[in-house]
Design a protein around this nucleic acid. Structure first.
Length: 820
RNA sequence: GGGGCGGUGGCGAAACGGCAGACGCAGCGGACUUAAAAUCCGCCGGGGGCAACUCCGUGUGGGUUCGAAUCCCACCCGCCCUACCA
């Protein structure tokens, strides 16, 4: 037996797998398919331990499914557009493309060291023109479906540099430009959006997918469905001013209105006397950070507009105020204020001396009085001062099934003053980025024809190379006149290109489709591949994408369904999230903390097999936890012991049936346990079970009284069970023991329930719930015998003291509890 | 403020409502060795006892149950997400 040399073995098998195409994944309609996908990395240039933690257990699961008989697709690629490349380029005066592709090359080498079963022929890189051609194509299809639109949106703008700024370019409390120090202003710019809100309702439906409750809850909260009513108020200038409320029943208590400072009607309703005040307020608000503006504990600010609106339920003339606690992005950007029954409105009314009219009489209490209230009342009661709904009970704080709300909506609909309505917190997806390193938005602006999409046959709109990264504040794309200036596809007149690029989340919203056929040039993916492989069966990745990527890709799939590209509505049927590997100090890993664990060094020292096994063993996968350099010794010993026992020249002196039966039982119990654990992503206990089998085999080899066939079964089974976790060393040992190539193509071992069954059970004997004795009984003992045996236990009879028990609980195979 | 996840030996963790601590790390004692590493054997939650054994113990306080780490209620602590959502 030679020593275990992980470097030699891992290099050897990685090369052999490559040469023999072991991990080529092809359509095969005669076999059931399994599309396993793990989130693709951003090419930062260094594969860190978090990547290993995400990818190697996913790989082991894919390998397990393969051994179970599935035709498994397990691809990999790179989410290669994005800001870091551009920042690195500006900093080092380097081409972002060069930076990105050098990083990709480096990471490919690192990923190969994992020994994962990625089929590299299916690799997709989102910054390749043959990839983003189809990103642009999908944009075009979304545009044609009316799901992409352009509208004004506020961005941070430096009036001195005359440019938009990214959030991280705005510095300090006073929000000044990072370059020139000028205070930035909010400016309305034309930006591209996707109408994800059209799918808000459908995105709330998780009935066809098995995703973690946590992710479903986060998405549900993110989408934020509220039920209520839309009510149209009329301003004195004659404009309609719709509002959304979850408490339409309190309409009779509305004593003023509040508009967001950015509301388009503000200009119109502001009176001449108030104009200067309102403008100053708008200006001040535009300088606040989002965080400042949206922090709830900040004191309310606002100004009177000078305008009035009419409450449609009672004709009351109420003042319209402007305040930034009302957000343009939610509902209609304007609210009715009911200070008696809404705390925010109450605080505002008290601060500015506005009228408060209670419309709910609390159950069994004194009527509310505007003069004595110290906070709003949101409890149950009976409606008062509310015309047609006086006397109707109100129970819940929000939502329907509240009699007073139902009655109000009926009244509103009957009188044409409003209707039942639903509002979502979800906003449309802003995809414009004032950035170079991204997929160009394939749009041309023509004086005559306006917004003109680039014709399909002219895609991709290539991102030009050799751009100048002068810090001028202009997009580098604008400086490339030969690229920026073009002609209108419709009229042929001179026109200009859109210089914004697409959010990289768009690239990653459909990559699972591109993997099927990364070089296909007649569509985003080859439908023949799609028909077989889609949708993704098993998706793995971090929880941090719960409300971003994981919503976007669901939206994309629904939109692709509208395009006729797919027939299903959900991209990934099952999702499992891994946790995070923390530093040894139990803190998030970071260079500044000096607690970063480098996988390359670990692979050098221990080998990929040991690193993989340790990552799967040290904690529950979805939980993660702190790294521990000592802990890796456990899996290291497992690998070493496996090496030793697989080489052992085992010749028993004399065979014992009992010892043989015990080892076989352990073997079959382990197969059962590891199989169940792989099914449920419980990798840590799977490794523990394999370690347990290892212990039994070593003991049996030492004892030398187990039949050779049982020993072979045990060792071969251990190799097969360990193969998904430690693919190289098990392959080597399998080959050395004369097994056919490859171990990864062997069927997953099956267990025999009869062999796995215990013949003797240890019954716990409790008296009043406390363990007093343990008795060994045959596994098939009858209830009567078990009860009798328990009562016969000395520990019981002693405590029973001649009396008969009040009750005896029998749990088969577990315990007998005697209650005195 | 809202929502989510978690709190079990020195450490990472196991445990269909049924023997708490599987498996591993560290530690301690011993064997081998000139020595160290590696390896092997034993011990390893706390208290009491020579021992058989016994009492206590899963963040805190209650509850349900024959029986609770597990279910319910309240609270404390930690982490994550979200944040004036009308």
């Amino acid at each position: 037996m030679s020593d275990y040399n992980h470097k030699e073995i891992e290099a050897k098998w990685q090369q052999r797998w490559e040469e023999t195409g072991l991990y080529r994944q092809e359509v095969d309609w005669s076999r059931p398919k399994h599309y396993a996908l793990t989130m693709l990395p951003y090419p930062s240039g260094d594969l860190h331990i978090g990547h290993w933690y995400a990818m190697t257990p996913s790989d082991a699961r894919a390998r397990y499914m393969r051994m179970k008989g599935y035709n498994v697709l397990f691809p990999m690629g790179f989410d290669a557009f994005g800001l870091p490349a551009e920042n690195a380029a500006i900093k080092n005066n380097m081409d972002p493309k060069k930076w990105t592709y050098e990083n990709i090359e480096k990471m490919r080498v690192q990923m190969r060291s994992m020994g994962a079963m990625f089929d590299w022929r299916r690799e997709a890189v989102s910054s390749d023109p043959e990839y983003y051609r189809w990103t642009q194509w999908l944009f075009r299809r979304l545009y044609d479906l009316g799901l992409a639109y352009r509208t004004l949106a506020p961005v941070d703008f430096c009036p001195s540099c005359n440019t938009t700024l990214a959030r991280e370019q705005v510095w300090g409390e006073d929000r000044h430009c990072e370059r020139c120090g000028t205070p930035v202003i909010k400016k309305e710019l034309e930006q591209w959006y996707f109408r994800i809100t059209d799918y808000a309702e459908e995105l709330l439906d998780f009935s066809t997918i098995e995703w973690p409750e946590r992710v479903k809850t986060m998405q549900t909260n993110w989408i934020g469905r509220s039920e209520g009513a839309t009510v149209v108020f009329k301003t004195e200038t004659g404009d309609e001013m719709p509002i959304f409320t979850t408490r339409p029943d309190t309409l009779w208590g509305a004593t003023f209105m509040v508009m967001a400072p950015e509301h388009p009607l503000v200009e119109k309703i502001t009176s001449p006397e108030q104009r200067a005040t309102v403008s100053a307020y708008q200006e001040a608000v535009s300088r606040l950070t989002e965080i400042d503006r949206e922090s709830a504990d900040r004191e309310k600010t606002g100004v009177f507009s000078g305008g009035y609106a009419i409450n449609p339920v009672n004709g009351a003339r109420i003042p319209i105020w402007i305040a930034d606690y009302v957000l343009m992005g939610y509902g209609t950007g304007a609210i009715m204020a009911v200070p008696a029954h809404d705390q925010r409105d109450f605080e505002f009314a008290r601060k500015f001396g506005l009228e408060i009219v209670p419309v709910i009489h609390p159950e069994g209490a004194e009527p509310l009085s505007a003069d004595t209230m110290t906070e709003s009342y949101v409890g149950p009661g009976v409606m008062v001062n509310s015309g047609p709904i006086d006397g109707v009970p109100t129970s819940l704080e929000k939502g329907r099934k509240n009699p007073s709300i139902d009655a109000t909506i009926d009244w509103l609909e009957a009188n044409g003053a409003g209707e039942e309505g639903v509002s979502y917190r979800l906003r449309d997806w802003l995809i414009s980025r004032q950035r170079y390193w991204g997929a160009p938005i394939p749009i041309i602006y023509c004086e005559r024809d306006g917004i003109v999409p680039v014709p399909i046959d002219q895609l991709p709109v290539l991102l030009p190379d050799d751009v100048e990264f002068k810090p001028t504040g202009e997009s580098p794309l604008k400086l490339r006149r030969d690229w920026y200036e073009t002609t209108c596809p419709i009229c042929g007149d001179p026109a200009v290109r859109e210089t914004d690029t697409m959010d990289t989340f768009m690239c990653s919203s459909w990559y699972q489709y591109r993997y099927l056929s990364p070089h296909y040039d007649r569509g985003p993916f080859d439908p023949d591949e799609g028909a077989y492989w889609l949708p993704v069966d098993q998706y793995t990745g971090g929880i941090e994408h719960a409300t971003m990527h994981l919503i976007y890709t669901r939206f994309f799939t629904k939109a692709m369904r509208e395009m006729g590209l797919v027939e299903f509505a959900e991209p990934m049927l099952q999702l499992n999230n891994q946790g995070m590997v923390l530093g040894e100090d139990n803190e998030k890993m970071s260079k500044s903390r000096g607690n970063v664990v480098a996988p390359d060094d670990l692979v050098e020292k221990y080998g990929a097999d040991t690193v993989r096994t340790y990552l799967m063993f040290f904690s529950r996968w979805e939980q993660g936890g702190p790294w521990n350099y000592d802990g890796i010794k456990g899996p290291q010993r497992l690998v070493q012991d496996t090496w030793t026992m697989a080489h052992a020249d085992y010749r028993p002196a004399a065979v014992s049936d009992e010892a043989t039966r015990l080892l076989r039982r352990k073997t079959h119990q382990t197969i059962r346990k590891v199989t169940e654990d792989f099914e449920s992503f419980a990798f840590n206990t799977a490794v523990a079970a394999i370690m347990d089998l290892r212990n039994a085999i070593l003991r049996a080899q030492d004892g030398g009284d187990v039949a050779p066939e049982a020993m072979k079964e045990a060792v071969d089974s251990l190799l097969l069970l360990l193969a998904p976790m430690a693919p190289h060393v098990t392959e080597e040992l399998w080959a050395r023991r004369g097994g056919p190539y490859s171990i990864h193509q062997q069927p997953w071992p099956a267990w025999d329930e009869a062999i796995a069954r215990e013949e003797v059970v240890t019954l716990v004997v409790q008296v009043n719930g406390k363990v007093r004795d343990r008795i060994e009984l045959p596994a098939d003992v009858t209830e009567a015998d078990a009860r009798a045996a328990a009562l016969a236990s000395p520990a019981v009879s002693e405590r029973l003291d001649g009396k008969s028990p009040r009750k005896v609980i029998y749990v088969p195979g577990r315990l007998v509890n005697i209650v005195l």
